[in-house]
Amino acid sequence: MDFAVVIGLGAAFGSVILAIFLEGSSPMSVMLPAPMILVIGGTLGAGLATTTLTDFMAAFKALPQYLLYRPREAATTVELVVSLTDRARREGLLALEEVTRDLDDTFLRDGLQAAIDGTDPEDLRHALEAKVDARRTRERAMAKLFTDMGGFAPTIGIIGTVVSLVHVLENLDQPSTLGHMIAAAFVATLWGLLSANLVWLPIAARIKRVSDLECAHMDMTMEGLLAVQAGASPRVVGQRLWTLAGVEPPASREAA
């Protein structure tokens, strides 16, 4: 698990709570059911209206895998592909069939199996590129949903504040309660801004980043698979993949 989400959101919410204490107040002063229900429920409803029910449910169902995402070790993949290239060049593609069953990376496993089955190189490239594009499109749609919700939340918070202020104006004949009612009215705006900037927008940015990392890894893997199928030199394949991975080869690190 990458702890960036835990540390980042912990620091953000911790700063808000600390600020409340430093103001001499209590976190319970902003934990008011009505504005929270309005902002959260209204934001979810508005978000649902922008997409389909299937996509909406799929986005929240897949959310844990993005929040708990652990970046892949590019070096491990490069070394694996180079070893596969070397073995395929010495023993032929069919020798890799037993290795295929033990691969955890489904993209690499399916692509390698297709190469072993004799798929035309151009057809294999198109098939792999289609998988990358499909993933990128799906995750961009997910990120857009949370970005849209991040845009709706502050406005819905303002709506809640206006609704509460209307109630305040209806009770001007009760001056002893006006201070509390006005303070409560602005809690909706607080929750709108807080949920947008500490929940929805960070989630959208997280999905985009994970998508970029995974698609880049898939692109690198695809180039390696095509090299394995073509019987390319393991040394040349290694150099190309290390460059695509943006990581120095082990030899360069040792020399440094």
Rank of each mutant, 00 (worst) to 15 (best):
H180L: 10
L178I: 09
E170G: 15
S176I: 11
I158F: 11
S176R: 12
T177Q: 10
I156L: 13
G160A: 11
L178A: 06
Q174L: 03
S176Q: 15
V162D: 04
V168C: 12
A153T: 02
T161F: 06
F152S: 13
L165K: 07
S176L: 14
V168L: 15
N171Y: 04
I158V: 15
S176C: 05
E170Q: 15
G157Y: 08
I158K: 07
G179Y: 04
H167S: 11
L172T: 06
L165G: 06
L178G: 04
N171C: 05
V163R: 02
T177V: 09
V166C: 08
F152W: 13
I156D: 14
N171G: 02
S176M: 11
A153M: 13
L165I: 09
A153N: 14
V162G: 01
T155R: 07
I156E: 10
I156Y: 14
S164V: 01
F152I: 11
T177P: 00
G157P: 11
L178S: 02
E170W: 03
E170D: 14
T177D: 14
G151Q: 14
V162W: 05
H167F: 12
L178C: 06
N171H: 15
N171L: 04
T161P: 00
E170V: 04
F152M: 15
N171V: 10
L165F: 02
S164C: 00
T161K: 04
V166K: 06
I158H: 03
T177W: 04
P154M: 07
L169T: 07
H167G: 11
L169K: 06
P175A: 05
I159S: 04
S176V: 12
A153Y: 04
L178R: 02
I156P: 10
S164W: 00
F152R: 14
G160P: 12
H180E: 07
E170R: 11
L165T: 08
T177M: 12
F152A: 14
V162S: 08
H167R: 12
I156R: 13
L178N: 07
V168I: 13
T161R: 07
L172E: 12
L169N: 09
Q174A: 05
Q174T: 08
A153L: 13
